[in-house]
């Protein structure tokens, strides 16, 4: 404070610049800043998009074991249809649109669907993707894409190997239920993490909610397109 007061007389002695000079100075600063930012954006945007796509691709291959290729599906006129991305058209990615991915093995047989879903957890929205085998009606893989769950407790939903084993063959019918650790008896039960019950229950809620949305659509899609579902060979 004392320093500032010492400076004040100096400023008064100087000629006050007109507002136009001030506006011009800030205008030029803003313009230059804008140019630099647009340049950086043009250069980094394709890389950022590629990163996001690669992350999604990695996640799809992880939740659908044996997956070799996949098709992006979206809801169109109340039906699941392949989403065709026109490479010539500048992509106006509609982030609100719900997408799912159907995965095929090397013989081009359908092995399942990778379904993104999100639900409020303990801290913030938990964003996930899971693999769903439509013939067995079981969840075959689960991956957390985004989470701010408590480190050391809630983050066990993706760091704890034991919790992950819940999602090797988890039946979705009639509904997924969370049970205490070590009490799993039925195929539709998930063993909650001790000390992270809220996060575990959020995951179960998420799976049920997301399956409610998609299960009917997926069944319709399989019948409509007369898809053969790969038999489990293990």
């Amino acid at each position: 404070m004392a320093e500032e007061q010492n400076i004040v007389p100096e400023i008064i002695e100087e000629k006050e610049p007109s507002s136009i000079v001030l506006i011009l100075a800030l205008g030029i600063a803003g313009l230059l800043s804008g140019i630099i930012l647009v340049g950086t954006f043009i250069y980094t945007d394709p890389l950022i998009r590629a990163n996001k796509e690669a992350a999604m691709q990695r996640a799809i291959f992880k939740v659908l074991p044996d997956c070799d290729s996949y098709i992006t599906l979206h809801l169109e006129d109340g039906m699941l249809k392949e989403k065709i991305v026109d490479p010539n058209k500048k992509e106006e990615s509609d982030s609100e649109e719900l997408l799912i991915y159907s995965g095929y093995n090397a013989n081009k047989e359908l092995i399942g669907f990778a379904i993104p879903g999100s639900e409020p957890g303990f801290q913030d929205i938990i964003g996930t993707i899971f693999g769903y085998d439509a013939s067995q009606k079981v969840i075959i893989g689960f991956e957390v894409l985004e989470s701010k769950e408590t480190p050391g407790l809630g983050d066990k939903i993706f760091k704890d190997a034991a919790f992950q084993t819940n999602f090797i063959a988890l039946a979705v019918d009639p509904e997924i239920i969370a049970v205490k650790n070590g009490e799993k008896q039925n195929p539709n039960e998930v063993e909650a993490i001790t000390g992270a019950t809220i996060s575990s229950k959020a995951v179960v809620r998420l799976l049920n909610k997301t399956m409610d949305i998609w299960q009917g659509e997926i069944d319709k899609y399989i019948i409509q397109n007369n898809l053969t579902v790969a038999e489990d060979n293990d």
């Binding site: 950086t40 945007d45 950022i48 990163n51």
Partner: peptide, 9 residues
């Protein structure tokens, strides 16, 4: 912002 974009990329 330059740092933000670069780290994301």
């Amino acid at each position: 912002t330059v740092v933000d974009f670069s780290l994301a990329a």
